[in-house]
């Protein structure tokens, strides 16, 4: 299966549109985790690094391939760790809402 010409451009176009639409609906409160989350997603580059490293046929290619996997793995693992930490902190509280309702303004 070879991806060339218009097929590649079509894939790029649809993917770009998808990314645009998905992010457009995210509330501002989640912008930092989201930047971090999308940062994690491009950690998929590690797969390309693995492909390059496994196909390396001399020391130079091995060295650069190793470097690619090292950095890509850092991108993916680190991106996941910080995004997960941030998102786990968002907690709702029903109690706070009922408190608003119960207490009238008093001076």
């Amino acid at each position: 299966m070879e991806i060339t010409g218009f097929v590649a451009i079509t894939i790029f176009m649809l993917a770009a549109f998808t990314g645009w639409v998905i992010i457009g609906r995210v509330p501002a409160i989640l912008h930092t985790p989201l930047m971090s989350g999308s940062n994690f997603v491009h950690g998929i580059v590690v797969v390309g690094g693995l492909f390059a490293l496994l196909n390396a046929s001399n020391t130079l290619e091995q060295a650069i391939g190793f470097f690619a996997v090292l950095l890509g793995a850092g991108n993916a693992a680190g991106g996941y760790a910080v995004t997960h930490r941030m998102l786990a902190m968002f907690q709702p509280s029903v109690a706070v809402h009922t408190k608003y309702a119960k207490h009238a303004k008093k001076h």
Binding site: E2, I11, A16, G19, V41, H42
Partner: peptide, 22 residues
Amino acid sequence: FTLQNPALMIAGMVVGAAGLLL
């Protein structure tokens, strides 16, 4: 695209567009 890997193409471009909007 160079590696002919659709997962990289899609994930990369999704982030490219999302990052631009952000």
